[in-house]
Simulated scan of single mutants.
Amino acid sequence: MDSKKVIFISLIICYIGFGVINPILAPLIREMGLEERHAGIVISIAALVLLVTAPVWGRLSDRFGRKRIIVTGFLGFSISLAVFALLGWIGMKGILSLNLVFVLLLFSRVLFGLFFPAITSASQALMADVTTTSERSAGMAIIGAATGIGFIIGPAIGAALSSIHLVFPVIITSILSLCAMVLIIVNIPPTKPTLTKKQIKVNLKQVGLRPYLFIGICLMVMIVMLQITTGFFIQDRFSLDAKETAIWFGIGLFCVGFMMALVQMTIVQKRTLPPHILVRIGLPVFIVSFLILIFIHHLAGFIIAFMLIGAGGGFLMPGYTTGISLAVGEDDQGAAGGLTAAATGIGSLLAPVMGTELYRFHPEAPYWTCIFISIFLTIYVFVSHRSLTLQRAKELAN
Rank of each mutant, 00 (worst) to 15 (best):
Cys14Glu: 06
Ile9Lys: 02
Trp57Lys: 13
Glu35Tyr: 10
Gly58Pro: 14
Arg109Asp: 08
Leu11Lys: 03
Arg59Ala: 14
Ile12Gly: 05
Phe64Leu: 13
Arg109Met: 12
Gly19Thr: 11
Met127Asn: 07
Pro55Val: 14
Asn22Glu: 11
Phe74Leu: 12
Met92His: 01
Phe74Ile: 12
Pro117Gly: 00
Ala85Ser: 15
Leu81Trp: 05
Ile16Asp: 02
Ala125Thr: 04
Phe84Gly: 05
Phe112Ile: 02
Ala82Ile: 11
Leu111Lys: 02
Ile13Lys: 01
Ser123Ile: 06
Leu86His: 01
Ala39Ser: 15
Cys14Arg: 01
Ile70Thr: 02
Pro23Thr: 08
Leu25Cys: 02
Thr53Arg: 09
Ala85Leu: 07
Gly40Asp: 04
Ala125Met: 06
Ala26Cys: 03
Val83His: 06
Ala47Glu: 10
Ala39Cys: 06
Ile43Ala: 13
Glu35Thr: 13
Ile69Cys: 04
Val42Leu: 15
Gly40Asn: 10
Ala118Leu: 09
Val56Met: 14
Phe84Met: 11
Leu86Glu: 04
Val42Gln: 07
Val52Ser: 10
Arg66Thr: 04
Phe84Arg: 03
Trp89Cys: 00
Ile70Glu: 03
Phe18Lys: 01
Gln124Lys: 12
Val52Thr: 14
Ala118Ser: 15
Ala26Thr: 15
Phe77Gln: 00
Met127Gly: 07
Ala85Ile: 09
Leu60Gly: 09
Ser121Tyr: 07
Leu86Thr: 13
Val101Tyr: 07
Thr53His: 04
Ser123Tyr: 05
Asn22Thr: 14
Leu96Arg: 07
Leu114Gly: 04
Leu111Ile: 03
Leu34Ile: 13
Val52Phe: 13
Gly19Arg: 01
Met127Val: 15
Gly94Met: 10
Gln124Ser: 15
Leu86Cys: 03
Ala46Ile: 08
Ala85Arg: 06
Gly91Lys: 05
Gly17Ser: 02
Asn22Cys: 02
Phe116Met: 12
Glu36Pro: 09
Ile29Ala: 12
Pro117Glu: 00
Ala82Arg: 00
Glu36Cys: 00
Val71Leu: 04
Ile69Ser: 04
Glu36Tyr: 07
Val103Gly: 10
Gly58Cys: 13
Ala46Lys: 08
Ser78Val: 00
Val71His: 01
Phe8Gln: 03
Gly91Ser: 08
Ala85Trp: 04
Phe84Pro: 06
Ala47Thr: 10
Ile21Val: 15
Ser44Gly: 06
Ala122Glu: 03
Ile21Thr: 10
Gly76Arg: 05
Phe107Ser: 13
Gly40Ile: 09
Arg109Phe: 11
Ser97Gly: 15
Val71Gln: 04
Ile29Thr: 15
Arg30Glu: 15
Asp62Met: 10
Phe102Pro: 09
Ser10Arg: 01
Ile70Ala: 04
Phe107Asp: 10
Gly76Ser: 08
Gly91Tyr: 06
Tyr15Gly: 03
Cys14Pro: 01
Leu96Trp: 15
Arg66Glu: 11
Leu75Asn: 00
Arg63Thr: 14
Ile24Leu: 03
Tyr15Trp: 06
Ser44Ile: 03
Phe107His: 10
Ile43Glu: 11
